Measured scan of single mutants.
Amino acid sequence: MALNTPQITPTKKITVRAIGEELPRGDYQRCPQCDMLFSLPEINSHQSAYCPRCQAKIRDGRDWSLTRLAAMAFTMLLLMPFAWGEPLLHIWLLGIRIDANVMQGIWQMTKQGDAITGSMVFFCVIGAPLILVTSIAYLWFGNRLGMNLRPVLLMLERLKEWVMLDIYLVGIGVASIKVQDYAHIQAGVGLFSFVALVILTTVTLSHLNVEELWERFYPQRPATRRDEKLRVCLGCHFTGYPDQRGRCPRCHIPLRLRRRHSLQKCWAALLASIVLLLPANLLPISIIYLNGGRQEDTILSGIMSLASSNIAVAGIVFIASILVPFTKVIVMFTLLLSIHFKCQQGLRTRILLLRMVTWIGRWSMLDLFVISLTMSLINRDQILAFTMGPAAFYFGAAVILTILAVEWLDSRLLWDAHESGNARFDD
């Protein structure tokens, strides 16, 4: 018995066209964080690309023209004298008006014999932002004059995390709450300039795509075929072959399989920071003279006294001054041990922890910024005066060393310790 099946006739004509040209192939790229070699397709503007294995951002879609970056830099340069030299806060102490600005706080630190601690604050609040705007201006002028731009481009990517104007702005709020127990506070004209400078700096850093600047100024022929001998440069993120001198053909720094002496430098910085954190938390970090009496505060006791007036601000200072430094030390110690013992479990967790400490590390400088600003506000000789204690130097040095330890660690070593050939990683 035959089955009668109805015929289905399409209502619209289906047209099949042959592909007349070869589909576009992607360029081969190595991930600078996990060293995976993959094919990167062509990316349009405002599109980002991520590593298929570790999800690290390979290409950032946010990109401004150099002219727009230069305009932002010149605007920031105009704001800087007002943000640093004009009063941020006014207080009335014992019937006398006192003005506080950024430069005055750094000068008070240096004047009291601790120039190293003052230079830490100076670099993060004044030096690094000033280098940022002058570097962008150098790129703008240098591109037109045919100057060598490689050193500036190499420095810009590392400079971003040292620009800490946003953290200093939080420190202004913390210092205001600490001082309000002794005097009446009012915002100064410099505060508005400083807030504007923070906003412009944040926007500029978020749109400063150094890798795209490398592509514009020093374009290189990408690798179009897969080759395990391809290496990625950690300076400019170019994937290719080393030249005859073993250097990256684009930025001219040595092109090595792994960062040289990464573990040794990381261990040295980490152990030194552990040693410095002990006096930083045991010795007094601030000293207040009130009517001839002397009151010393460690980091913890200062947080407890701050909690009596504002528990939320005390929580912020606790996280930045105690929780973050010790968390960074514990995480980095764990990561280094996992590399030495070739741990194969929990790779995803370790990668996330490394990215976390990379982002939060700079916030530990908050305590030094609060001390710097408070020193310029309260300084009335023996009637009422505020000065920093010996722990300030140890704390600042420990924070900087932990930042350097994270920067010096080559994250690809975590993958080397893991089993080879993993296309995915999980716990």
Rank of each mutant, 00 (worst) to 15 (best):
D297M: 07
S135A: 06
M365R: 00
L300E: 03
W408P: 08
G26W: 10
R17S: 09
K178H: 04
H184C: 04
I185M: 12
D227N: 13
L276M: 10
T224P: 10
A392Y: 01
R294H: 05
A417V: 12
A71S: 11
L3C: 14
S321R: 01
K160G: 07
W84S: 07
I322N: 13
T349V: 14
I403K: 04
H237V: 07
R62G: 11
G421F: 15
N379R: 13
L213Y: 03
P249I: 07
A83V: 06
Y218I: 10
L169H: 03
E419N: 09
L384T: 02
L283T: 05
V16D: 12
R362K: 09
D35H: 10
F194T: 11
Q186K: 13
R150P: 01
I378D: 00
G85A: 08
I339L: 06
S420A: 13
R225Q: 13
A385E: 03
A187F: 13
F386D: 00
I371L: 12
C31G: 00
L88H: 04
I274V: 11
L323M: 12
L263F: 09
L354M: 10
E211G: 07
G20P: 09
R260H: 04
L276I: 06
L78T: 09
N143G: 14
V170I: 05
F217W: 04
M356H: 10
H90R: 13
I253T: 04
P219D: 08
F318W: 05
M356K: 10
L257M: 09
E211M: 14
Q382D: 00
L414S: 09
F141D: 00
I98Y: 05
R59D: 10
G361Y: 01
I378V: 14
K160I: 06
I253Y: 15
A73F: 15
P390E: 09
N281V: 07
A49H: 07
L191T: 15
I287H: 05
T358S: 08
T358A: 09
P129M: 06
S309R: 04
V329A: 09
F333K: 12
T134S: 10
M80E: 07
T134M: 12
L404V: 14
I330N: 07
Q29S: 10
C54A: 00
L159I: 03
D297T: 06
Y289C: 04
C31W: 00
Q55F: 11
S309L: 01
L145T: 06
T334H: 11
F318A: 04
C266N: 05
L23C: 09
L300F: 11
V313F: 06
W107K: 13
T202P: 07
T358P: 05
I136D: 01
L94V: 05
S45I: 12
Q186P: 02
K12H: 14
L77S: 15
I287D: 03
D35A: 08
V16M: 09
L401E: 06
T117C: 05
P254T: 02
F326H: 06
T239C: 06
